[in-house]
Amino acid sequence: MIRAVIVMNTQGKPRFAKFYDFQPVEKQQELIRSVHGVLCSRAENVSNFVEAESIFGPDSRVVYKHFATLYFVFVFNSSENELAMLDLIQVFVETLDKCFKNVCELDLVFNYTKMHSILDEIISGGQVLETSSAEVVKAVEEISKLETASNSINFVSKTVSGWRG
């Protein structure tokens, strides 16, 4: 299963993090820091795998991809295929690209919740559920439609209730 998905910039600032087995927040920060420590020491044009058993414990593997100013990091165990995980990062990034039109770091900074919606469609409980970015985009769009709809209703009703009360 997939144990964590982390997106951070090259300076090590986390932009997004999701752990599929519970980790206390301090531990999360520590893990992110140690991953960054490993990643920033790696040259370009080397393999996308990192030996990470010292960071994440036994039976854990890490693949990452470097896009512009961002690192996308997937942590998983032996039940996943390393190359397939690389493909999955590609799917994730493609989906982000479709949702935000030429995604850049700033999009991720301001769309924290939407990233969660997107990733939740791709991975649930550490299991890969969807690998087609088109399907993901479709689901995410419906979810945001639902969100805005509920919000607009809510805005009216709240105002009314507010005045009434």
Binding site: F22, T113, H116, S117, I143, L146, E147, S150
Partner: peptide, 19 residues
């Protein structure tokens, strides 16, 4: 009752709840 709020609640729960 509203989906958008519920979603925030669920996200927070899955992020912070543990045994």
């Amino acid at each position: 009752s509203r989906f958008a709020q519920k979603k925030i609640g669920y996200l927070a729960a899955s992020q912070s709840f543990h045994e």
